[in-house]
Design a protein around this nucleic acid. Structure first.
Lengths: 212, 212
DNA sequence: CATATCTTGTTAATTTTATCACTAACCCCC
DNA sequence: GGGGGTTAGTGATAAAATTAACAAGATATG
């Protein structure tokens, strides 16, 4: 793997898309793929695909293209999908449950070890086989059970406090679904999914179809 | 509103972020804000904020800044939040329910009129006050009940068929949560929320903290 | 009411990102 | 195993996005 110097986040955000396409190709028993064909499949230019992949090393071969299986493995390795990730979800409402079931069905790489909530009557119950604990015990839990990723699916009002507890507990990254930009003291990555922002962009394009 | 020529999607994707900040400012009874202060608040440079807003018109005033209430109203208008949007959700699983409750609690601008599902035993039931109908009746329903936005929260396998039915029913835009890139014959906007892609990017940055 | 201070709108410069164009390597078939 | 056809890697070029710079207008103050 080359990977010298900083890689632009635009490139990084395309890697999962490549991975997804390669999974589909593997499932349809395609052995090799050229940048040109991949381009038709996912819409990025062939040139961009070649340049993106070349940031990390020459995975292809002239006259042949890329071996689907190998490339998929390489991209997986670049992203870090060769190890497992332990997660906790703060907020066991509908969204928390949706993420929980998504995670467990999606990939063996990710495992939700516990849910957390403020609501007294939920604590002690299980959702999708995962125990709900009190958010008051979150930091303590994390210290005893080292965890890679904290997911925040609580209300806007409770999100910053959830974030603080996750950081105090030493998570390595945060996946935030609350519609707020969290302050994070530790220098760890934070991935935001702002559903309302997303919906609002969609509405803009609905009203300005000529802008598509 | 100026808005001549195509506005880059990078700009459009920032508008909801501005709106969110302005809502917070309004809630804390702030009357005016300068691009400099807004910059501190949301992290974009002051220069970028001024340039973004200027695509749509001069909403500010030298020596004063921007009036919070007015600017919020203007951005709302640009996005199209001065009218209401009728939505249906295809897929009444956990994610569909999460989106449903999010929508109804989030804003009076959006209203989910019906859920749709393939599972026989769910049809006829209600979730969060919204009836679940058979996905077989989706297109028919849409023709009788003009709908602006179709939300897809079904499995990867059922997503394309859901998309086709939504398009046939004449929705104006699609919000897709299935981990697949849908083919859409009609020329309508599609907003994708690929949770797995998002999670994979996060994992990359967890493993390459120096790249943040 | 004059003036020092802000702050926008706007143009220009810079940086980043994406595309093009070409070379050299490799495959595949005859 | 030789040659035509493919295709990756890559440096140059073009396009897009961001940031910087500054003139002009407005505010606030004494």
């Amino acid at each position: 793997m080359k990977q010298d110097g900083k890689i632009s986040s635009a490139v990084i955000r395309r890697l999962p898309r490549y991975l997804r396409a390669l999974e589909d190709l593997e499932n349809s028993d395609t052995e090799r793929i050229s940048s040109g064909e991949l381009s038709k499949l996912i819409g990025y230019t062939a040139s961009q695909i070649r340049q993106d992949l070349n940031h990390f090393g020459g995975f292809g071969q002239q006259g042949y293209g890329y071996n689907v299986k190998d490339l998929k493995a390489e991209i997986g390795k670049i992203l870090g999908l060769n190890t497992k990730y332990r997660m906790v979800i703060v907020g066991s409402g509908r969204l928390g449950q949706a993420i929980n079931s998504f995670i467990s069905s999606y990939s063996a790489n990710f495992c939700v070890t516990s849910l957390f909530d403020v609501k007294e009557d939920l604590i002690g119950k299980e959702k999708h086989g995962v125990l709900i604990r009190s958010v008051d015990t979150l930091t303590e839990y994390l210290k005893e059970n080292p965890t890679d990723i904290g997911v925040i699916t609580v209300t806007k009002e409770n999100a910053q406090s959830a974030c603080d507890k996750l950081v105090a507990g030493g998570v390595r990254g945060i996946w935030n679904f609350a519609p707020i930009d969290l302050e994070c003291t530790a220098d760890i990555p934070m991935e935001n999914v702002h559903l309302s922002d997303n919906l609002h962009s969609l509405v803009y394009y609905i009203n300005h179809p000529e802008q598509i």
